[in-house]
Design a protein around this nucleic acid. Structure first.
Lengths: 218, 218
DNA sequence: CATATAATTTAGACTAACCTAAAATATCCA
DNA sequence: TGGATATTTTAGGTTAGTCTAAATTATATG
């Protein structure tokens, strides 16, 4: 059994691994965990003792298979609970992260599997992130950054890259929720801003920054 | 904000208060918390500093209004989660306690209230225990111990006094779940055992110990 | 009512997870 | 390639919650 804190470190290391090549540095972990590098060193040693990470002094860490499996199961729980909160309890997509952060540590395989079934085995969470299956497999998707699409392309909003509340609330205000059908009507070379049109005919201007954080299924 | 551990102490003290008169002793708390008396003394001092209990050395403790309110909210969460697990995720009534013990510490008033609504504002949990409302009010019930009923009385199984898995599983085996209609057909003076008859005509023999732990709504 | 026993508290120590400051190592660049 | 700088680790300390053993207070009984 791993502590709440150990689980959070594993999850953090997993997410850093997704974003960068090579070993994960102590400072990078300290940053996302909101602690100091010295604390990370302590914890990393403990995780190494438990064979959850490979660690050599000054070389950073990498999750072992065992550590990765645990991290994936935590992500599975987090995303399933987010589905529950949004689909069953009518939370908005910008309200669920902190609660799911707590719920993800509830310890019962049966609970997770029953929840999965209750929700109809969803493949993606309310932000479009894939939900790993019971045995840790992520569904493939065909999502592309809105910024990379060409004029005339059509699709549906399928996910976000930035999960911050301010970004999610901005999309909400523009009525760009998951599943919204859009077409790319205009690309501005100069600042890379775009204009999209929704199914109900609204034209929406989006900056490069925004377009880069919206994923579209085409 | 109170820690997970502080919440468990408050809940333990609340439950002991339900069962006994006067102040709650250090040893009694140590027993239900599975710790030593010395640890309880430390925690009780902390809770007293936070004005959650009244405490005087060697005199035991009593919850303040503030402490009691927190305890009741934890019980509310515990029982609502038990309803969720049984009614929505098809857990059996003997499988939910440990999971609810974790879920009860999830910190979000909105979550609890939305869950309450999602479940249809249940008044009793899967063991027949009353669920306090948002403002801490418990529903009254008209439940009587099966042992105290008279021959010919009819009613429905509405709750249990013993919440142990062995007891719940025993009732399960006898197909005496919550809501089962029964009539008391025979009382044996000698050993206080009883015979009840279910709606579908099964006669079930129950010892004094069992009859004393079954609550019936008449 | 005095003393034996039981309950409670204090004292001092442990672990997990964190911290700061200092030491050790790695990296970068002139 | 040799400093300068940045990163990481070590050393030593803190807090929450626990423990054991000893000291204190309450209670019970002859």
């Amino acid at each position: 059994m791993n502590s709440y804190t150990e689980e959070n470190y594993l999850k953090a290391i997993y997410k850093l691994t997704e974003q960068s090549e090579g070993n994960i540095t102590t400072n990078a972990i300290a940053e996302v965990m909101n602690t100091k590098a010295a604390s990370v060193t302590d914890m990393v040693k403990k995780l190494a003792d438990k064979k959850l990470v490979n660690y050599a002094k000054y070389q950073g860490v990498r999750l072992t298979k065992k550590g990765e499996d645990i991290a994936i199961q935590i992500i599975r729980k987090h995303r399933l609970w987010e589905c529950f909160l949004v689909n069953k309890l009518n939370f908005k997509w910008d309200e669920v992260h902190d609660i799911a952060e707590e719920l993800e540590h509830i310890n019962s395989t049966t609970l997770v599997d029953r929840l999965d079934e209750f929700l109809g085995f969803p493949k993606f969470d309310p932000h479009g992130d894939p939900i790993p299956s019971k045995n840790g497999i992520f569904s493939a998707n065909n999502f592309y950054k809105l910024l990379k699409l060409n004029e005339g392309d059509i699709g549906k909003v399928a996910g976000v890259c930035d999960h911050s509340n301010t970004f999610l609330q901005y999309l909400e205000k523009q009525k760009l929720g998951l599943g919204t059908s859009i077409s790319l009507t205009e690309k501005n070379e100069y600042d890379q801003s775009v204009v999209i049109t929704t199914a109900d005919g609204r034209a929406i201007f989006l900056s490069k920054e925004v377009a880069n954080n919206i994923l579209v299924a085409i």
